[in-house]
């Protein structure tokens, strides 16, 4: 099996991180201070986590958005998104 089976995953993830970086700099131009969970990235992370189980490249695009956000932002959202994906995977695939 070739490696480029995962080319869409990698490309979409990279694109997602780039978009995330750009957009989060639009959202936050102030110095990094707050450490609370924001609603919009959380929703995106949850969508990403859900989509990973169904169609992985698209899910990675949304997760990449949260991963790639400005340094310091999007950490909790990422963790929550991955946890959600794990829970969904356990429910759908294993059980």
């Amino acid at each position: 099996m070739p490696y480029f089976d995962y080319l869409p995953h990698i490309v979409l993830f990279t694109v997602g991180t780039l978009i995330g970086l750009e957009v989060s700099y639009k959202w936050h131009s102030e110095p990094f201070v707050n450490k609370k969970i924001e609603p919009i990235p959380l929703i995106i992370a949850l969508i990403g986590g859900g989509l990973i189980v169904i169609y992985a490249p698209l899910g990675l695009l949304f997760l990449g958005f949260v991963v790639g956000m400005r340094p310091g932002y999007g950490v909790y959202e990422t963790v929550l998104g991955i946890l959600f994906a794990l829970i969904l995977w356990v429910i759908l695939v294993i059980i």
Partner: peptide
Amino acid sequence: YMLLELITAFLFGGL
């Protein structure tokens, strides 16, 4: 085939 593998490895290695 080789070119696609090359691109994949490059992007993945960069990440």
